[in-house]
């Protein structure tokens, strides 16, 4: 495996981690308001999955979307500015944390009605097939979206019409505070949901960025070649609360459980692999920390220094002229 590749994967995960930590800090300072759902603990999925895509492939996500957007290559400054509600934000301050969109990077949005973006992803894939383009669409959602009717309707359409879409279910075990075993009948094997529609489905360790990337390296060419949709369950865990409204563990799970999962922190796993294989030294990681820290610092400064939208922007973009 190429050393530079591993450095790049680690660096991207580190960027998301530090970006999210900084976001939480900015939230505490009331620079960011509303809902803020952090991706901390789940970084390996976005980074590992996006690593196998072409720049013109589509990516779409739910409301926990900062990680996917950053992994797609969005400017951290413009993402942070969006969280601040600034005019320089990706969506000019009108989207916010849950509705990031970056069209030039083919990040087609974060959506906050659970399950509601899965038909959209299926439609992006439909458009690609309709136009005979060899593009794939990757759709991220949590396991909480799986039982929703819209997910099922979309799976059926994708399988029926052999659409080039990869559904990535980030199974972090809790839909807000409700564990999967109390929400999903087939909780022991959520991929079975997709299989029941004739979609090829598999499960992967979502804490291991190399495992996620390896799965996608196998799957993406299949889907790109027109062999129909694919479903990947990536098992993971969120280290923070569902949103900023609840503490890291809350009443619905124990501190011990969180600590147990933290031993399999995706950054720690990759770092240990790289150290063990002598692909990087502690000094290299310190250097990466400095670089990423600087990027996040600059992002926050950009957001801070940017203007808010003007009141006259209120009615802009309701309709297209």
């Amino acid at each position: 495996m190429d050393t530079a590749d591993l450095h790049s994967l680690y660096r991207q995960m580190l960027l998301i981690r530090r970006f999210e930590e900084k976001s939480a800090e900015m939230y505490a300072l009331a620079k960011i308001a509303g809902f803020l759902h952090l991706y901390i603990g789940e970084e390996a999925i976005a980074v590992g999955a996006v690593a196998s895509l072409r720049p013109d492939d589509y990516v779409i996500s739910a409301y926990r979307d900062h990680g996917h957007c950053l992994a797609r290559g969005s400017d951290p400054g413009r993402v942070m500015a969006e969280l601040f509600g600034k005019a320089t934000g990706l969506c000019k301050g009108k989207g916010g944390s849950m509705h990031l969109v970056d069209l030039p990077h083919r990040f087609m949005g974060g959506y906050a009605i659970v399950g509601g973006h899965i038909p959209l992803a299926t439609g992006l894939a439909f458009a690609n097939k309709y136009q005979s383009l060899d593009l794939v669409t990757v759709c991220f959602f949590g396991e909480g979206a799986l039982p929703s009717g819209q997910a099922h309707e979309a799976f059926n359409l994708a399988a029926l019409w052999k659409l080039p879409v990869i559904y990535i279910c980030e199974n972090n075990r809790y839909g807000m505070g409700t564990p999967a075993e109390r929400a999903i009948a087939l909780y022991t094997d959520v991929a079975e949901t997709a299989r029941s529609y004739g979609i090829t489905a598999e499960s992967v360790d979502g804490m291991d960025v190399l495992a996620v990337r390896a799965a996608m390296q196998r799957v993406v060419p299949q889907v790109r070649a027109g062999h129909g949709p694919w479903f990947i369950e990536a098992t993971t865990y969120r280290f923070m609360g569902h949103s900023m409204a609840d503490p890291a563990h809350g009443h619905y799970r124990t501190k011990e459980e969180v600590e147990e999962y933290r031993k399999r922190d995706p950054l720690l796993l990759l770092k240990n692999t790289m150290l063990a294989q002598k692909l990087a030294s502690e000094a290299d990681f310190k250097q990466l920390e400095r670089e990423v820290g600087e990027i996040v610092r600059v992002a926050v400064k950009f957001a801070e220094d940017s203007p808010f939208p003007a009141r006259s922007d209120l009615h802009v973009d309701v309709l297209q002229e």
Binding site: P119, T122, G123, Y130, L157
Partner: peptide, 17 residues
């Protein structure tokens, strides 16, 4: 499945159809 195919059409429109 109106939700499914309407959503699919919206996604297709986002992609330029």
């Amino acid at each position: 499945t109106e939700a499914g195919f309407t959503g699919l059409a919206i996604g297709a429109a986002m992609a330029g159809l």
